[in-house]
């Protein structure tokens, strides 16, 4: 036990706490308070506005986008993680996949929007190629710039993110567990369904939640891709913030932001719970 003689040691963490208070807590509190006030008084108008049809549509679209890309990205990312987990830790393949994954998942953003515009946009390489070779029009009426396009482009950072967060779980599977299962009489399939599957499930579900939150909160890619209209919540916030026509939109932004905090916080809490379980097993 440390001596609790004085409060002096606390001084050491004050700069850090003060910094977070200014740049993280104050903005968050401003959003939360702002969502419930209008012209300086308590007001539920903005919260009520969350139930208007445009905002509800945006929420639904956001959930569809995050849910579908979490699922697609989660399954495909887990598959890729499993494949590269069998490569030695120091192999170039593994390092290269992880480096590219980190770049796409963490730096990505605006760049990824342009990556797909250059591929299947109106004059994109693949669009032109297929047009010339097979007379197939994959550009259509610009579906890349709709919710469907967002789903496709989001997968481009969701799959890599899944690889990064799920690989440690796959690496955590010990060779002894497979061998023990085999000596006990388990077939390959039985090992997968009764040992590896149950062991990886919490990590897999947790990763799906993380992917959901990641897509739900993402802004850059959508903002670069969709310049007209606001199909999803983050773009509604953009519209509310940059709107010069309707005054008082600022506080609608607060309300939508609050809605995002609530959704993401719920998802991340579930994620933390699942992670705790899986890390206890994998010690």
């Amino acid at each position: 036990m440390r001596r609790t003689r004085s409060l002096v040691p606390l001084v050491g963490v004050l700069p850090f706490l003060a910094y977070l208070a200014v740049f993280l807590l104050i903005p968050t509190v401003v959003v939360i308070v702002g969502a419930f006030t209008e012209n300086g008084t308590f007001d539920l108008g903005n919260i009520r506005a969350l139930s208007n049809s445009a905002t509800v549509d945006a929420l639904r679209n956001s959930v569809v986008l995050s849910g579908s890309t979490a699922l697609i990205g989660g399954v495909l990312g887990a598959l890729l993680a499993t494949v590269i987990a069998s490569a030695p830790e120091r192999s170039l393949l593994r390092r290269a996949v992880l480096a590219l994954s980190g770049s796409l998942a963490q730096t990505g953003g605006v760049s990824l929007a342009f990556a797909w515009m250059a591929t299947i946009g109106g004059t994109g390489t693949l669009t032109v190629l297929l047009q010339k070779a097979l007379s197939v029009d994959i550009y259509g009426s610009g579906w890349l710039y709709t919710l469907h396009g967002l789903i496709l482009v989001y997968c481009y950072f969701q799959i890599p993110l899944m690889v990064i967060v799920f690989l440690p779980a796959v690496d955590g599977l010990r060779a002894q567990w497979r061998e023990a299962a085999e000596t006990l009489g388990a077939s390959r399939l039985q090992y997968l369904t009764q040992v590896a599957g149950p062991l990886l499930l919490p990590a897999f579900l947790g990763s799906l939640l993380l992917l959901f939150a990641n897509a739900f909160a993402a802004y850059a890619t959508a903002a670069a891709l969709v310049s007209q209209g606001s199909p999803i919540l983050p773009l509604m916030i953009r519209a509310a913030l940059t709107s010069e026509i309707v005054l008082g939109q600022q506080h609608l932004a607060y309300a939508i932001a609050l809605e995002m905090i609530v959704v993401v916080a719920l998802v991340m809490t579930a994620y933390a719970l699942l992670l705790r379980r899986s890390s206890r097993w994998m010690r």
């Binding site: 993280l24 968050t28 959003v31 909160a217 802004y219 932001a257 609050l258 995002m260 905090i261 993401v264």
Partner: peptide, 9 residues
Amino acid sequence: IPALVIVVG
């Protein structure tokens, strides 16, 4: 807390 939320506040 999404970056977007912090920006708003």
